[in-house]
């Protein structure tokens, strides 16, 4: 009987910690511990069926889904239509391209992870819907300037436009939601 009371008190403290924690990953790990304690409570209250389901779902599958969602949230996806040999987006030991340096500094400032994808827009589809692309890079055929296309609603695009306003090579275009990128 004492064990049940102690576990219940532990649950209260755990839930307070989960709500008040600022770090997302920590909150998820403590959520997993929370469901483990709940499962042992079910066992002591003579419901082993529920305890088995709670261990499998509550402490393994749900936290994994949360973790994937968090790691997806912190990505800045860039699709480049310029050729791979172009020095604009090059990132090797010897040379770091101008555009790569700009985007790298930009994403580091906002604590995001930069993902650059060479290839076509059509190949980047998720299972149920098309992927949310943050930025498309193209090279203009008329004057050789690099064009960065992004959504008009994104606040990040405004900041990027302000950053590159003095640069002659780079042009930032914002597009309304729902329009096609190409």
């Amino acid at each position: 009987m004492i064990i049940i009371y102690m576990l219940q008190i532990l649950l209260i403290f755990l839930s307070i910690y989960i709500i008040s924690s600022k770090n997302n990953l920590k909150a998820i790990i403590f959520f997993s511990i929370f469901s483990l304690v709940t499962a042992s409570l079910y066992y002591f209250l003579k419901a082993p069926d529920l305890a088995l389901a709670e261990v499998a779902i509550g402490s393994a599958i749900t936290p994994l889904i949360y973790i994937i969602a968090i790691s997806k949230q912190r990505e800045f996806l860039v699709v480049s239509h310029i050729s791979k040999r172009d020095s604009f987006l090059l990132n090797t030991k010897d040379t770091v391209g101008k555009g790569y340096k700009l985007l790298d500094d930009f994403t580091k400032h906002y604590n995001l992870k930069l993902v650059i994808n060479h290839g076509k827009y059509d190949e980047l589809k998720g299972i149920f819907r098309s992927r949310n692309i943050d930025l498309v890079i193209e090279k203009s055929k008329k004057n050789g300037r690099y064009i960065l296309k992004g959504k008009k609603t994104s606040i990040l695009m405004n900041k990027l436009a302000q950053l590159t306003i003095t640069d002659d090579d780079i042009e930032v275009i914002t597009i309304e939601e729902g329009e096609i990128y190409d």
Binding site: D49, A53, A56, I57, I61
Partner: peptide, 25 residues
Amino acid sequence: YITINGHLTPGGGFQGGAILATAVL
């Protein structure tokens, strides 16, 4: 084990299936 012994011991199809899903995870 939990799936096949579902009619004798605690557990059953749902619980065993959830544990199998964790293995795939």
